[in-house]
Design a protein around this nucleic acid. Structure first.
Lengths: 358, 358
DNA sequence: CTATATATGCTCAGAAGGAGCATAAGTCGT
DNA sequence: ACGACTTATGCTCCTTCTGAGCATATATAG
């Protein structure tokens, strides 16, 4: 270390001439900022997301403008209008992604008509319960209504086997040479049929692929001639979940992907649990989010190993069988170990049937 | 599934009245968008980042305005001005975070004077080599110049033991009761001294903590009385790395954190390697990024197990010892398995000395 | 009292990963 | 040519993690 920090005490003020490599003569055009919220909560072992409608347009994620005069940060602005509109207390808020495409209406594809300069910042917010909302236009909906092929909790969805995968297969076969190989690889990575297996976190990749192939309801703003000849116009798009306004479904997919991933290395799941719960409650919640069934005993083993839970001492008699011990989160332990998430003991074999040893 | 998607074919157009929960009467104020780039590359086993200077203000990350009239997406805009200013070909570009704080100059703290409405989108970009840049004000610098305490490649930095940790300890002791316990927990999570261990990915958390305590050069815009009484004004800030303009050092920390994490589950490291390299080259590169030494044999074992590398057949005689086999990336394998990163066989015991069995 | 739930404890085996030993094949100085 | 070093590379050992399944406990429904 030979150079000491500059003498002039490093004032953290922006220099007169903002020091980009080249800002000469180019002024950024002012744009509008919109905040999009994916508000997620669990209800009866279903993962739900708050949606709004306006007239007969498709569903939308709640969103509002960001006014920098009113709020110091995005997050404060978001919390403000969410709590003003709903009675929800947002425990956990996380920025997802900022979408700045001019052709954003078309999921990032080019568009023929010029669009307004719109930038939207997506946020994921977790609520402890899907509390009723005071807005007739707002409603909680299971997120698998938008992504039915993502719910493997009772096995591989028939929609996937019967419709989506064949359609993707056709799309692959409709090209040749290198393009074909690339398409095959993309489908394989996203949907993992042969060597790879289904990775729940790839939900965005899957959605974008399906969008590109034309398998979902949202219309692409423009298509090239080749893309127009895609063979999947048999109405499959009508069965692949509810469409949403603009690219909101993509934002939702981003949020789910983030949450599915984060579960594994941060204890976020407890933001969505009530004050006391059984281990099976917790398991069902995790299953709801990741979208597949877990191995019960192993789940319990690893959850108890975290030391994040303590027994309340009481039992739950809602089981229909032997009563289950009720647990609550150890707030202290949670604070001290904000790292660490849950092990997800994925069931590799059969989801339910216990196969005899032989 | 009872409700079929709406009949009107889900046009992906934004509805006339943008359907936020409540947009009535509130118009978002237009803001300026700035793109910040963390341009990273490796040079002689040092991780480098491109910095610019303007006059005698502190170093800055290259940044430029985003003009939606000119570029369709942020990423295109970024690539455009980076390639115009440098000869670098950006292989990999990834959005980091969008900073919208009004008090951004003060790292997100409140500020007394009103500021312009500025939003900046941070990007991480990886280049294959730290190629020379055609701008006298731009220069590659090791990122450990900004974060000297993050480089554990030759053991725990003395700066940490001698200065930073004691100062943090004082900060903890200067509070009492619950505050004290909270501070202790925060320091422990970020710097992991007792039960936890150093987690390289927590670089942002560490920097923000140090900022809050006043251990880094960047000045906080405003402080509360209590914070002003922090006991760490002994000039330590002059030794904790080079300061940067505004919150650029925070953006850099975000980028490093992202890269350190991503290594483990995406093969991004190959974006920063030349066409052919030895396994030790690869190891040194990974070590440069994560900031600590790896176990050589185990690193090699797991890298070879990925199947992402193929031997070129030639040997490197640059070793000073037995020649090493040269490898190159198997592009096909890389494409087919965009998932999977490298196992990081962290050395838990002594970095160098082999302790006799006894 | 019996069938049938669910809860909970425990064992077993394979895979992954942390460490270190041993050997191979170069360079450099004498 | 030889000995001292240096780096490369192969292999073993052992512990921990984790996928699976068996066995037992304690309820409820008839």
């Amino acid at each position: 270390m030979d150079t000491k920090p500059t003498d002039n005490e490093a004032t953290a003020l922006r220099p007169e001439n903002p020091g980009g490599i080249d800002t000469a003569g180019r002024a950024g055009t002012p744009v509008q900022i919109t905040l999009n919220a994916v508000l997620a909560a669990l209800e009866d072992n279903e993962p739900k997301v708050l949606c709004v409608t306006r007239g007969d347009s498709p569903l939308a994620l709640p969103y509002g403008p960001f006014d920098p005069r009113e709020h110091r940060t995005f997050e404060l602005g978001l919390r403000d209008w969410v709590t003003r509109q709903t009675q929800l207390s947002l425990g956990y808020v996380e920025q997802l992604y900022t979408f700045g495409d001019r052709g954003r209406e078309g999921l990032g594809r080019s568009l023929d008509t010029p669009l307004e300069h719109l930038v939207s910042v997506g946020y994921l917010a977790l609520a402890a319960a899907a509390a009723p909302v005071d807005d007739a236009d707002a409603r909680w909906r299971s997120w698998y209504r938008f992504f039915p092929w993502e719910d493997w909790r009772s096995g591989k969805p028939a929609l996937l086997t019967d419709a989506i995968l064949p359609a993707l297969g056709q799309w692959v076969k409709s090209a040749d040479g290198q393009t074909r190989e690339q398409r095959r690889a993309r489908v394989e990575t996203a949907f993992g049929q042969q060597n790879l297996h289904w990775e729940e976190e790839r939900i965005l990749e899957r959605f974008e692929l399906m969008y590109e192939v034309g398998l979902v309801g949202e219309r692409r703003a423009s298509r090239t001639a080749i893309e127009k000849s895609a063979p999947n116009e048999d109405g499959l798009a009508a069965r692949t979940g509810l469409p949403m306004v603009s690219d909101h479904r993509r934002i939702l997919a981003t949020a789910i992907a983030r949450l599915r991933g984060k579960l594994k290395y941060r204890p976020v799941i407890f933001q969505m649990m009530g004050p006391a719960f059984t281990l099976l409650d917790l398991q069902r919640s995790v299953e709801a989010i990741v979208g597949f069934a877990l191995h019960k005993q192993n789940f319990r083993r690893s959850v108890e190993a975290t030391g994040l839970l303590v027994r309340t001492g009481t039992l739950s008699d809602q089981t229909g069988g032997r009563p289950a011990a009720l647990f609550r989160v150890d707030r202290d332990a949670l604070q001290n170990r904000a790292d660490m998430g849950l092990v997800i003991p994925r069931l590799v074999h059969k989801p339910t049937g216990r196969r005899p040893t032989e």
